[in-house]
Design a binder for these strands. Sequence first.
DNA 1: ACGAGAACCTGTTTGC
DNA 2: TGCAAACAGGTTCTCG
Length: 279
Amino acid sequence: MPELPEVETVRRGLAPVLEGRRVATVLARRPDLRFPLPDGFARRLAGRRVEGLGRRGKYLLVGFERGICLICHLGMSGRFRVHGGGAAPAPGPHDHVDWITDDGTCVRFHDPRRFGFMLWAPPGDPESHPMLRALGPEPLSDRFDGAALAARLAGRRGPIKPALLDQAVVAGLGNIYACEALFLAGLSPRRRASTVVGARADRLAAAIRRVLEAAIAAGGSSLRDHRRPDGELGYFQHGFAVYGRAGRPCPGCDCGRADGIRRMVQAGRATFHCAARQR
DNA sequence: ACGAGAACCTGTTTGC
DNA sequence: TGCAAACAGGTTCTCG
């Protein structure tokens, strides 16, 4: 599922029910997700108060008292769901972890494909974890602009679209928003990454920021698995210009081609683009 | 150094 | 209709 806007939607949904509360009970129904659950997972969390929920790229950071921090990744199909007001529904086959807070709210992690994971962050300095340290700039931060993006793309001879999926270039883009940002910027997914400099890099950085902010405002995109923690659907999927729209007309394009949007495969992933509008 | 492809796992969609 | 192949929002490893 989840790219940056979906993870941010999850963070915003969980914060009000977790922050300031104590995790009274931890239920882990299997010992592993993508990786084994970390040492003492249930024991170390039980009874501990949640101080805050953060996010870095697609990683959700759950900060507990006394410097304990859990790094969560939703993989392709992971989702958190909040069940308030009494007993949660009986767990289904892929409901792997429950946290029951001291006011009886159940926060449940569900992940059919189990590409998601939870790991301890280094105490006191969560971002020094190897997985976070390797991340590129946070695209919604003040420091992210065309120059910062171009610097990360310098020397890359492959096409721009797969480069945008590299979390070391910019943190948080996935297949959907990489396609959408390139469309908004008018750049071909096939363009050599190192040629995205100057005004082109400015346009792309601005497009990335714009599409991510719009998606967050819409509660993310719900294609298959993504739900907001309250169970509601995101609705940014209705705002896609190109993703999943092969054979449909290109929106906002005067090229007049009824089959404006094309699908191709790059680095094993589907890429959607308008050949007339993206150069 | 970089990039393509496979692997990880399950559910859903597509195509014959 | 039925079955098998293809495909899915991610990350990491190997190989060339």
